[in-house]
Amino acid sequence: MTQTSTARLMDGTGPARRIVERSAARAAWISRETGTPPCLATVLVGDDPASVTYVRMKRARCEKAGIASRHVGLPATTTTAELVDAVTALSRDPGVHGILLQHPAGPHIDERAAFEAIAPHKDVDGLTLHSFAAKSFGLPGFASCTPGGIMRLLAEYDVELTGRHAVVVGRSAILGRPVGMMLLAGDATVTYCHSRTADLASIVRQADILVAAVGRPRFIRGEDVKPGAVVIDAGYNPGNVGDVDFETARTRASLITPVPGGVGPMTIAVLLEQTVDAAARQLGLDPGAGVG
């Protein structure tokens, strides 16, 4: 890779729009073939303003794509057992094809127990242990949506993974860990880092592909970006600020995602696509059919 004066933007809005359009066409086909539209159930504990906004946005995107939505709103006092019961009921409901549990669910909730109540064939957000294991071993399964969106974005921009050193800064179960495993499956050499990694900057400087997913504004300094690197900023902090110092990083990177407009649109698009895939399978249709 060679140094460039200004990085090319990896815009996620265009690729995401094409994924959503294709998903909408397939959702319409499923509805015509079976009389049943794909259905995504959202589960929200409490009334955290950010979570309420995210769920409302996801439901609105579903409606535009011809995907039915069902919402289960639970009080903030909901116990883990009550949440598990609600999710289990949705897992058993044949009218629901995908389940999205909005997180965080609250400090008193055992989120892992709640996620594991999602039936694997309805885990369209890709958060169960089954889904993580499936993607890690290259088996059929649902991707965690943000990592799945990142991989689609890398493919959209023809980023070669084989033999490249990918550095993932972040180790969350929904982003950092699964994206590292997906990069490894693509034949990249992967290094995991986090906020407590010793001499983090020296490792970041080795990255041909850098994924920032640590949840701290401008945590990655531009001067630590390897010239010519591909920078994926999966952070979203108050003020529309990512985890990378964008203005300085773009003077060294070859490709970089903007915040917003990079990874975010791809996350929603993958969620909708996987919901349609799940519906097709559960209704006995070929998941790849329905689009000319």
Rank of each mutant, 00 (worst) to 15 (best):
G264S: 12
G242N: 09
G163S: 06
G46P: 12
G73V: 10
T88K: 03
A7T: 07
L154V: 15
S202W: 03
A68E: 15
L255I: 15
T79N: 01
A143M: 06
A234S: 09
G261P: 13
S51P: 08
A229T: 00
E63T: 15
L127F: 14
D243C: 06
G262N: 11
P238D: 11
G284E: 15
R18P: 02
T146I: 03
A155N: 09
L139Q: 13
H165N: 08
R112S: 13
D158Q: 14
V179P: 00
A253D: 08
T42G: 12
G73W: 14
D224C: 05
L175T: 11
F246H: 12
V225W: 04
S195I: 11
A114S: 10
P260D: 10
A185V: 05
V244N: 02
Q102L: 02
P178F: 09
L184D: 06
L283N: 11
I109T: 05
I67P: 02
V55L: 07
T162D: 09
V211C: 13
P94W: 02
R70F: 04
A143I: 03
P265A: 12
R17W: 05
V84K: 03
E111G: 07
G66F: 03
A68Q: 12
M181V: 05
D11M: 08
Y236E: 07
A229Q: 00
M182E: 00
G186S: 01
R32Q: 15
V55I: 14
P94H: 06
R218K: 09
S91R: 07
L101E: 14
I220Q: 10
Q282C: 02
D11L: 14
G66Y: 03
G292I: 10
V225R: 02
G148C: 05
A198S: 13
A76G: 08
V231Y: 04
A28S: 10
G235V: 02
G149M: 14
G176K: 07
F142E: 01
A201D: 14
R22K: 15
V204P: 07
L285M: 15
R26P: 09
R216C: 03
P104G: 06
T267A: 09
S31Q: 13
P104T: 06
P238R: 15
V244I: 00
V96L: 04
S31D: 12
I150A: 04
D125F: 11
L283I: 05
A278F: 08
V43D: 15
D187P: 01
M266N: 10
V43F: 12
T36V: 13
